[in-house]
């Protein structure tokens, strides 16, 4: 039993490693699941026992990079950041960890995180969205103005829209060291935090609790 689990882990690692190399070399769209299976030394059908779709596999790679980023982000928090700075750092560290995958990650995110998709493209994409927005809500609670207890659904929608905009800008950013992305990210987070001020609620008590698991 123990050997099987280890073997499974090893096979999964080979699939992820092979996919990462192929996505980098050929791009996401041009890489087939057959290519990935071949690179991992397994039968095409076996791969689906591990990852139901190519999108799920790609989002797993993205998610692993962002988990490392999350650890670094938490370690770097000083506690005295303003909310816009904390949100900036959260996204910026993530982008840095995604940088080795930039060749193809735009294509992946375009498919997996499309704001026009009626249903989540894959479970991994939905988990990523939920996890990211939960962190944002925690940051709002810990770094935001005391009057904001829970941001509204529309507020979180605005955040997600801005975040996707930053991701798409970053994926195509040709500026030196992608410095333009830093500016766009900074402006986006300031804009978002500006929308959180108490006046923005027209003085009404904010009572709508956000369920970040909803897709729209």
């Amino acid at each position: 039993m123990r050997v099987t689990a280890e073997k499974k882990r090893e096979t999964r690692r080979r699939i992820v490693e092979g996919a990462r190399n192929l996505f980098n070399d050929k791009g996401f769209e041009q890489t087939t699941t057959r290519d990935i299976a071949e690179a991992a030394g397994i039968a095409a059908g076996t791969m689906f026992n591990y990852f139901p779709t190519k999108e799920a596999l790609a989002m797993t790679i993205v998610d692993e990079a962002l988990q490392e980023a999350g650890t670094e982000f938490e370690g770097r928090l000083r506690g005295d950041e303003t909310l816009d700075e904390a949100l900036f750092a959260h996204v910026a560290v993530g982008l840095r960890h995604l940088a080795p995958h930039r060749n193809y990650v735009g294509e992946v995110l375009e498919t997996a995180l499309s704001p026009f998709a009626r249903e989540p493209v894959c479970e991994q994409a939905q988990e990523f969205r939920v996890s990211h927005l939960e962190t944002v809500q925690e940051l709002i609670a810990s770094h935001g103005p005391p009057t904001i207890r829970t941001p509204s659904v529309m507020t979180m929608h605005l955040y997600w829209t801005l975040y996707l905009g930053v991701l798409s800008f970053w994926a195509a950013d040709e500026s030196p060291n992608r410095e333009d992305t830093l500016v766009v990210l900074d402006e986006s987070m300031r804009l978002f935090v500006g929308s959180l001020s108490p006046e923005s609620e027209n003085g009404r008590e904010v009572t709508d609790v956000v369920d970040v698991t909803q897709n729209r």
């Binding site: 816009d84 509204s152 529309m154 507020t155 929608h157 605005l158 829209t161 300031r190 804009l191 935090v193 500006g194 929308s195 001020s197 006046e199 923005s200 609620e201 027209n202």
Partner: peptide, 16 residues
């Protein structure tokens, strides 16, 4: 743009 998104008056605090 913000007003449209949130259907409420939004002063852009820090930007302002």
């Amino acid at each position: 743009l913000l007003q449209e998104l949130s259907h409420k008056q939004v002063p852009i605090g820090r930007l302002n």
